[in-house]
Simulated scan of single mutants.
Amino acid sequence: MNTETLRNWIRAADGRRLEAHSAPPTAARTGGDAVQAELAAARKRIREPEEERDILRKAARYFAGETRW
């Protein structure tokens, strides 16, 4: 690998990191109510797959305990 290529990648990554820190917080740009609503919707979307995962884990435990070879 060429050392200049690696140096360019590092510079690009540093530039992105600096831009991310300089952006204003989301709550200041959109208002607190919109952020809270978005957060509630995200939590709701996350809750469903977690419940499905828990059900599948319980079923796997049940069936693993049921089979005695």
Rank of each mutant, 00 (worst) to 15 (best):
W9P: 00
E51H: 06
E50C: 04
L6W: 02
G32E: 15
V35L: 08
P49C: 01
A37F: 03
W9L: 06
P25G: 12
A59F: 05
A37C: 04
T5G: 07
R53C: 12
E19F: 04
T26I: 15
T5P: 02
A64H: 03
A34V: 14
R61H: 04
A23I: 08
L6Q: 03
H21Y: 12
E48Y: 10
Q36S: 12
A37V: 09
E52A: 13
R61D: 08
G15V: 05
L39Q: 11
A59E: 07
M1I: 00
R53E: 12
A28K: 04
P24E: 04
R17P: 00
A60E: 14
T5F: 08
R68V: 11
Q36P: 01
N2Q: 01
L56Q: 03
R17E: 04
P49S: 00
H21N: 11
R11K: 06
A34R: 12
R7T: 07
A64V: 02
E51F: 04
P49A: 00
G65V: 01
L39I: 11
A59I: 08
R45I: 10
E38W: 13
T3P: 04
R47E: 11
P24W: 02
E38F: 13
A40S: 05
R11E: 09
G32Q: 15
R29W: 03
T30W: 14
R68W: 10
I46K: 14
M1F: 00
R68H: 11
K44T: 14
D14M: 14
P25S: 13
A12S: 11
P24S: 03
T3H: 01
L39E: 05
R68K: 13
A12E: 14
G31C: 06
A13I: 10
D14R: 15
E66K: 09
A60V: 13
E66C: 08
A12G: 06
T3K: 01
R11S: 05
T30S: 12
E66T: 10
K58P: 00
E38S: 15
R11D: 08
P25M: 11
E50H: 02
A12V: 08
A60W: 12
R7D: 07
T3E: 02
S22L: 09
R53N: 14
A28D: 05
T3S: 04
G32M: 14
R16C: 03
T30K: 15
L39M: 10
R29G: 00
R57N: 10
A59M: 10
Y62V: 03
I46W: 13
A60S: 11
E52N: 11
Y62E: 05
L56G: 03
I10M: 05
E52L: 13
V35P: 01
Q36K: 14
R45C: 08
I10Q: 03
A41R: 08
A34L: 13
G31L: 10
E48R: 13
S22T: 07
A42Y: 10
S22D: 02
V35T: 01
R47D: 11
E50M: 04
R43Y: 12
H21I: 14
A13F: 07
A42T: 09
P49M: 00
R61I: 02
V35G: 00
E19Q: 09
A40I: 05
D14W: 08
A60G: 07
R43S: 09
F63P: 00
A37E: 08
G32A: 15
L6K: 02
G15M: 07
R53D: 09
R16L: 11
L56Y: 01
D33G: 09
G31W: 10
E51L: 09
P49K: 00
I46R: 15
A37W: 04
T5D: 09
G65W: 01
T3M: 02
